[in-house]
Amino acid sequence: MKISAVIPAYNSAKFVNAAVASIQAQTKPVAEIIIVDDGSTDETEAVVRALPGNIVYYKQANQGPSAARNKGIELATGDWIAFLDADDQWTADKIALQKAILEKYPELVLVAGDMAEIDNNDHIITESVLAKHGMLEGFQDLAGQAIPNALARLVTKNFIPTGTVLAKRDILIAAGGFNADIRFGEDLELWAKIATYHPIGCLPQRLMLRRQHGKNATSANESMLLDLTKVMDSIRTFSEQQLKHQGLDPNQLVADAFWNLGYWYFATYKSNLARNAFVSSLKQQLTWRSFAYLIASSLPRLLVLRIRKFKQRIS
């Protein structure tokens, strides 16, 4: 088993040293570290070239993290790929824990895990993201076994942080790699493709420290919500029958994505865009919720403000 670690980097001079150090500190070492510099304009190249160890450095024009990860997969000589963003860090036993679970459950083609969140000073903000989202106990019960109905669980809540993933290289390639046309949710799309046809696992142990700062904030915004409509439509296309088999309505997934987009527009008083999104939601699935918000987004803004104030008072 030969593992290649892939790091996409963009203007990462401040943190990439710590990311690489966390890989080199593994109790079970990886064979190589591939750093794909995605068009950095800071000192990233100089910092990386000064680092010791088996590091492959490749620089390309800026194309986004998905294209950088795909290039890393292409350059890798390992049969297994592990990912880490340049501003994050692995815990020291990350690879050891994953190797152990793969020895126990060799049918798995992808193993992820829990993570903590840290600030720019490496202070822990969140001890367990799985616990934060109420999922830790379920993965503790599974103890690394193949996840039942993993596809349905993924599209309900993406529980796989990219920086914790260890996956078979040929499976990543067969699934098409990361979709470079999508900026938000491209990881979910890839994991869903893999989970549609293969067993995957998720360890309850903390495998990564993810840095929280403005550059990687993923609070709801228009671009993210637009991309998620594309992601859910894509997942429906290649996993429709599997989703149905696992108890989910594929059309409802897409309808909900459009409703979330419509509600964001509605909440930010972009009425025309809200109406278009709610109409798109209704085309996927007829629901009273979408119909009600379609009507509400057609009302005068002043009336909407009064309705909101009334709802706040009675609640």
Rank of each mutant, 00 (worst) to 15 (best):
K59I: 06
Q212F: 11
Y105I: 02
A86E: 00
S234T: 09
A46E: 13
Y58L: 12
G113S: 10
A167Q: 08
E240F: 11
D170W: 14
R210Q: 14
A31V: 04
K283I: 06
W80Y: 14
T237Y: 06
I194H: 04
G138M: 11
R153N: 12
S4K: 12
L273I: 00
R308E: 02
R301A: 01
T162A: 14
R169V: 10
H213M: 05
K309E: 08
E127M: 07
T44R: 05
H198S: 13
R183K: 13
K94W: 00
A255S: 15
N11Y: 01
L261D: 10
L243W: 02
S297K: 03
D37W: 01
V48E: 01
A112R: 07
F258W: 15
L225A: 09
A25P: 01
F310S: 05
T218N: 14
S239C: 04
L282G: 06
A82Q: 11
G247M: 05
S297L: 00
I171P: 01
V165C: 14
N11M: 07
R289T: 13
E222T: 11
V109H: 05
S128Q: 06
P300E: 04
Q98M: 12
D87N: 08
L273C: 04
L225G: 10
D79K: 14
A217G: 08
P65W: 02
Y269D: 15
L228D: 01
I55Y: 10
G214M: 07
A76W: 10
F291Y: 08
I81W: 02
L130M: 13
G72V: 09
T27L: 12
V111L: 12
I124W: 02
L108Y: 03
S219H: 11
D256Q: 11
R210C: 09
Q60S: 09
S280A: 15
Q252C: 03
P52I: 03
N11Q: 10
D187E: 15
D93G: 09
N216A: 11
M232Q: 13
A9D: 03
L97H: 10
K132V: 00
R206G: 03
K309M: 07
P106S: 13
P300H: 07
T41C: 09
Y197W: 08
G113P: 06
A257V: 07
Y263P: 02
G214Y: 05
K14W: 07
D227N: 12
G201I: 04
L228V: 01
G138T: 07
A86C: 09
